[in-house]
Design a binder for these strands. Structure first.
Lengths: 124, 124
DNA sequence: TAGTTATATACCTATACGGTTATATTTAGA
DNA sequence: TCTAAATATAACCGTATAGGTATATAACTA
């Protein structure tokens, strides 16, 4: 009984470079399977499989235009995935921001502690 | 020759619910392996494996505290993943925003086109 | 109707993944 | 130094995944 979360399939779909490239292409507008397959060296059935993964993840939807099945990107799962990441990233940042600030401050202080260094170098 | 992108491993790491739960826990602060394993029913080696995946993806780093290896979240790959998604999501929105606006406008016009309808209906 | 194009499906293979149990390693503490 | 605790590693199993080729389906076109 695989309890498959929506995020599971979304992230899994995004984990493949071919599929990310397909999404990148689709961000520019609709495209047919052949058009999507063109830039890749892999076979057409392989592209069809990738598209099915993206479709099952809800990341693309497909229409019908004669014998073509134009694909378009669907942003909603992307929004959910992004929201998940940003949520935890924000918590993390809230937790560690002060430490980061401290380190940044220390770096800055180190730089400012020897202001003559670069000027002297130019003299050489 | 697997050309493994950083995004590949990041998204792949995020695709597992156990690993996302671990990250969620780590967002609250550092934790040892045993602490992380506690809420799950799976074995300790399984947790260790998940941690290794997260570590290889750069999503967690580990310290040493006696016999414990406390884990902490690392936000940078999260930022990269989030940035990737948001980038294409934004392009998508820019492309289809006008269409969405149009549809929204049409809906609104439809509502406004028959303002007497509801009133008339009441008469019945 | 026959041929061609676009896409999907079937079947096969190799590898990766998530889980297990058993065992090794490392460190703390009596 | 011996034992116990925390963690990692090894070996194994079943299933999923990405890829291939061959073939089927469906819709245009001559």
């Amino acid at each position: 009984m695989p309890i498959v979360d929506q995020l599971d399939v979304t992230f899994a779909a995004l984990a493949d470079p071919t599929r990310r490239a397909i999404l990148a292409r689709l961000a520019e507008g609709e495209a047919s399977v052949m058009e999507l397959a063109a830039p890749f060296e892999i076979s057409q059935p392989a592209i069809s499989k990738h598209l099915r993964v993206l479709e099952l993840a809800g990341l693309v939807s497909r229409g019908r235009d004669g014998q073509r099945r134009p694909c378009r990107i669907e942003a909603e799962p992307l929004a959910a995935a992004s929201a998940w990441i940003e949520n935890y990233r924000r918590i993390w940042e809230a937790t560690y921001a002060r430490l980061d600030d401290l380190l940044e401050m220390m770096k800055r202080e180190q730089r400012n502690a020897r202001p003559a260094r670069r000027a002297r170098r130019k003299r050489k």
